Simulated assay, not measured.
Amino acid sequence: MRVIVVDDDGIVVRSLATILGAERDVDVVGTGTSGHEAVSLFTRVEPDVVLMDIQMTDGDGLTAAEEILGMEPSARIVFLTTFSDDEYIVRALRLGARGYLIKQDVSTIAPALRSVMNGQCVLEGEVLARAAELSIGTGSRGGTASPAARNESALKGLSAREVDVVRAIADGMTNAEVAATLFMSEGTVRNHISSILAKLGLRNRTQIAVFYLRKCM
């Protein structure tokens, strides 16, 4: 995969380029230190994945992502940041970012990028938990939108009960909690999840949560 790395810390950029460049299936085709450079690099080298920080001194990553996705809606953008701020998570998901990782264990970055190349969305555990906890509403930080206020047209192919299960998963519930809340057996929950995955073309529960947070909130 062809990757560009953008971070306003030059040491971080060089370290990531070295670490990722050592992977047999990764080619770091460009590096930058600002959101403006990210947009310019994307236009010039047409990478498969943009790995980018959010807070940068000369043009932030979220604004750059918005510009890139405006030019190429299918662009794969993965944020790698020290910030798990609620507003950043909400905006990143709504923009259509394919990943949101926290700068902790660099050994997880290459596998995450491979997952993104395979069509998956990747959220670091803390971020997924925060996104589910937020129940992202229409622009209100930490607000909870009622089902009636949500745009659930993306779920129109599901049954009403399957929609209930999707909402519960997006709220961070386990299968046991979904079963107790919706008054059904865990076996029935698993059957509903299998059906949901097939209908939405998804692979796992995490993707269900991400799909709902991005498409319906």
Rank of each mutant, 00 (worst) to 15 (best):
E67T: 12
E67D: 07
G70S: 13
E72A: 12
P73R: 11
P73W: 09
P73G: 09
P73I: 06
P73H: 08
S74N: 11
A75W: 10
V78C: 06
L80Q: 03
T82D: 08
D85M: 05
D86E: 14
E87V: 08
Y88D: 12
I89R: 04
V90D: 14
A92W: 01
L93R: 09
R94C: 00
L95V: 02
G96W: 06
A97N: 06
G99Y: 10
Y100I: 05
Y100S: 02
I102E: 12
D105P: 00
D105F: 02
S107L: 07
T108L: 13
A110T: 05
P111T: 00
R114P: 02
R114I: 01
M117S: 09
C121R: 12
L123T: 02
L123A: 03
E124G: 12
A129K: 12
R130V: 11
R130H: 10
R130E: 13
R130L: 13
A131H: 08
A132F: 00
S135V: 02
I136Q: 07
I136G: 06
I136D: 10
G137L: 02
G137Q: 08
G137I: 00
G139A: 07
G139H: 03
S140F: 04
T144L: 13
T144I: 15
A145M: 11
S146F: 04
A148C: 00
A149W: 00
R150W: 02
N151Y: 00
E152N: 00
E152S: 01
K156T: 04
L158Q: 03
L158T: 01
S159F: 01
S159I: 00
S159P: 00
S159G: 12
E162P: 00
V166P: 01
R167H: 12
A168C: 14
I169Y: 13
D171M: 07
D171L: 06
M173Y: 13
T174Q: 09
N175K: 10
A176M: 04
A176T: 11
V178D: 11
A180K: 15
T181C: 03
T181K: 15
